[in-house]
Each structure stands twice: as structure tokens, then as C-alpha cells.
Amino acid sequence: MHIIVPIKQVPETSNVKMDPVSGTMLRTGVETVVNPLDLYALESAFRLKEQHGGVGTITVITMGPPQAVKVLKEALAMGCDQAYLISDKAFAGSDTWATSYVLSRAIMELGAYDLIIAGERATDGDTGQVGPGIAAWLDIPAVTYAAAIESTDAGFVSCSRMVEEGYQQVAVQLPAVITVVKEIGAVRLPTLRGKIRSRSAEIPLIDAGKLSAHKPLWGLSKSPTRVVKIEQTTVKREGKTVVVDEHTPAEAAADSFMEFLAEKHIILGDRHA
């Protein structure tokens, strides 16, 4: 079983700066980490490999600047077998359409695979579009929001998708793209052995030259979407405070709660409709 896990490096904090001119993120000076939701993609790959008696290969890939090698090392330390960095100045400024294209073409260069497991979404861009996008470019099925993955008969997996109604049970033919949610299981930590191994691991580069067999549909110029404006959000709240203490009993706080509902015309939901 060959599983490919695309992961993204994201800024450590949720307070990153934006370039007001280009509308792109200023990544310099900000610590980056593996997108927290991609840890669940890695975890499900490890679990599937374990289910297969440890037989198989897990390949982790990331598209990003050269420093993104750091997140690949971390994934190797957790237990991935090999890693590829997809990086080129020409890829810079790609939107989700172009990013999923580059990832799909890089995946085509990696040879045969059974599964691609991606995160639900990246916590910086917050689109969740790259997973289904990769599937569309590769013409393989996309199963999103998987909370559980199980290998069934050869060539199929069954997944439980977290949807608004609860869970949708599906069987999907491989190869496929699956994006996973946190319920897939608790994430493991890197091991000491893994860390040592990852330090010396060779991480091949896939640049635009390596993708020369494909159309160069990447970078800002080939991206259909443009960021035209960035605004800092300001939260304006009136902020009334009620402190429950020896002067104000909890009863009064509850009254404020009820008054607030009335003031804001909040109608109690359909239970009584």
C-alpha cells in the first residue's frame, strides 16, 4: 500500500501579517508548523499501514518555500517513509486551483499509489479546497470529512464522513483522495528513532523543471482568483458586564441574560415553534 500525504506549513500563531500591497501573507519572521489538521491525515496513514501489518510506504509531500522542509522532517520523525519538497519560485502565489494542480502533477511523478490522504483544511487559508481539487485533477474519487477509514476488500476502503446529518457511510474504490477530520484518532508524537532518522534523510526536490512534462499552470499569473483587498477586522462590541458577588446575586445575572435576549429580539428556536 502506497499512501501519499500532502501537508502544508502554516504560521504558528493565528496572528500573522499580510502584505497590504500584494495581499499575500508575510511569512518571514513567523514560526511555521505542520498545519494542525494535517497531523490527522498523517495519523490515519500510519494507522492504515499498521492495519496492513506495517507493509507499505507512506510518502509525505509539501509545496512551499525551501524552509518547508522543516515540516517534512517532522513528518518523517513521526513515521513517514519518504518525503518530497515541491518548491520553485515559479509556483509562488498559486491559489488553491493552481496549488492542487502542482500537487497533482507532482503526485503523478511519484509513481503508483493507492491513497492520498489530506487534511480537512489548512488553518491559515481555511479553504479545504486543495483535497477535492487534487482528486479532480487526477480524476480519482474524493471522499471528504472522513472520521473513520477502514480497508475492506482489496481495492476498496470504507469511510464514515462527518456531515450535517451525522455520518454518511461510503465505500470508495482506490486510488482515491480522502480528507480526514480530527475524529480519526489521537495524533502520535515523533519518536527519538524517527528524529534521528529524519535528520539524515534525503529529501528530493520537485521543482518546475521536474514537472516539465506538464503544462505550467502554476503561480500567481495562472491562478484564477486574485486577492484585491485585505482589511484588519475590528470587533465592535458594546460589552455590558454583570459581576456576580455579594451585591449582585446570580438571579440578577440571569435577569440580565433574559433582558439581553429580549433586547436583541432573539427568538427561542424551533423547539417551541
Binding site: 495581499g23 501573507m25 482568483t225 486574485r226 486577492v227 485585505i230 482589511e231 477586522t233
Partner: peptide, 17 residues
């Protein structure tokens, strides 16, 4: 749309498609 954990609002367009 809100981005980066709701800290910014980004306006995006699709001019040529």
C-alpha cells in the same frame, strides 16, 4: 471572507474566468 482565524477580511475576485 474571513481568513487567518478571522483576524483579517480578504476580498477576492476572479477577473478572467
Amino acid at each position: 471572507r474571513p481568513a487567518i482565524g478571522g483576524n483579517i477580511m480578504a476580498t477576492i475576485k476572479t477577473p478572467h474566468h
